[in-house]
């Protein structure tokens, strides 16, 4: 089997607070292979962004990695020092943020921001970097890249800015991109273009992508496999088609059932009773047990088994209706 680009092994992130330690990420394991797009879904506070920040080493103190391992292309990176981690950022791991309006420095030309990033990581001359800045903008589909390279961020629309952000994240050719809600702040019509762009560039270059989102449409559209997170834990992991059409975890099932469908007409939308627990009061046993229709005594006492490559973290996974 080919070695995965990114591999999380039982990763836990802890934040010490006045009311004790909370675990926004609790024992999460998954792999992402070269050229593969893994969709990470979950509600706000489920720990999906926190896991991404842990991978790129940008957890805001006092949050820190408490247990587990992160492997990037066969080397362990969770224990690297600040300076060694900085060299990896941008060079091996790129990141795309949610809001393109605020993620570009308003006072610097986008060309300068590209050149600066490339000169930090690549052994090339200033003039080579300038040429590559233009081609990087062309690649992300910015018309008139040769002139636009001298523009300031405010001279671009939101969708164009997100293209610039993607160019910046990819310009040193990292092997992993963490895209944290890259389309949430954009127009629906622009969202599809950005997703298609991200997908095309990563396929071409064999870049692994961790696509963090809460939009099931984006997941279905763009990703190969998906990981569903709930209260800091992995609820379900598997190929997108299987998980979407035959969810095994009751939470995933509930999520799918509460996605509005155009064909469903005006029938009442399904909802999962209750709300995700606060991180300082995650229940004993399976985190989902108070809201689950199938809860038994076992679910209240023993934490659910952790999913391996494809299964659900559940004592009683829903049966696949058909073998896939």
């Amino acid at each position: 089997m080919v070695e995965p680009v990114l591999s999380l092994r039982n990763l836990s992130v802890e934040i010490p607070t006045r009311h004790g330690i909370v675990k926004p990420v609790d024992g999460v394991s998954y792999d992402i292979g070269a050229g593969e797009i893994l969709g990470v879904v979950g509600e706000s506070g489920a720990g999906k962004s926190m896991a991404g920040n842990a991978v790129i080493g940008l957890l805001n103190p006092p949050a820190h990695i408490a247990a587990g391992e992160i492997w990037l292309k066969g080397s362990r990176i969770d224990n690297l020092t600040g300076e060694a981690m900085r060299r990896l950022r941008g060079k091996e791991i790129g990141m795309v943020f949610q809001d393109p309006l605020t993620s570009l420095n308003p006072l610097l030309r986008i060309g300068d921001q590209l050149v600066e990033t490339m000169l930090t990581h690549l052994d090339i001359s200033q003039s080579d970097a300038e040429k590559r800045a233009v081609s990087a903008l062309e690649e992300v589909g910015i018309p008139g890249a040769a002139e636009r390279v001298n523009s300031y961020p405010h001279e671009f629309s939101g969708g164009m800015r997100q293209r610039v952000v993607i160019a910046l994240a990819l310009c040193a050719e990292p092997s992993l991109i963490i895209a944290d809600e890259p389309t949430t702040a954009l127009d629906v019509s622009v969202q599809a273009q950005i997703i298609a762009l991200l997908r095309r560039l990563c396929r071409e270059r064999g870049t692994a992508v961790m696509l963090i989102t809460h939009d099931m449409g984006v997941i279905a559209e763009a990703t190969d496999r998906m990981a569903v997170m709930y209260a800091g834990r992995l609820a379900e992991l598997g190929p997108v088609r299987d998980v979407l059409s035959h969810p095994q975890h009751p939470y995933t099932h509930g999520l799918m059932a509460s996605t509005p469908l155009a064909s469903a007409g005006k029938s009442r939308l399904h909802q999962i009773p209750g709300a995700m627990p606060r991180l300082d009061s995650v229940p004993e046993g399976c985190a989902f047990n108070p809201r689950c229709p199938y809860t038994t005594e076992k679910c209240r006492q023993a934490p659910a088994p952790r999913p391996e490559s494809t299964s659900a973290a559940c004592w009683y996974p829903l049966a696949r209706e058909k073998a896939s």
């Binding site: 790129i56 990141m95 600066e116 952000v165 040193a172």
Partner: peptide
């Protein structure tokens, strides 16, 4: 966010603090 993004691109602390933050 743009400071966070500058860090996420692996820019050196000096560049982040003086080129990106100080000018703003």
């Amino acid at each position: 966010d743009y400071i966070r993004f500058a860090r996420a691109r692996g820019l050196k602390d000096r560049a982040v603090n003086f080129r990106h933050a100080l000018k703003n």
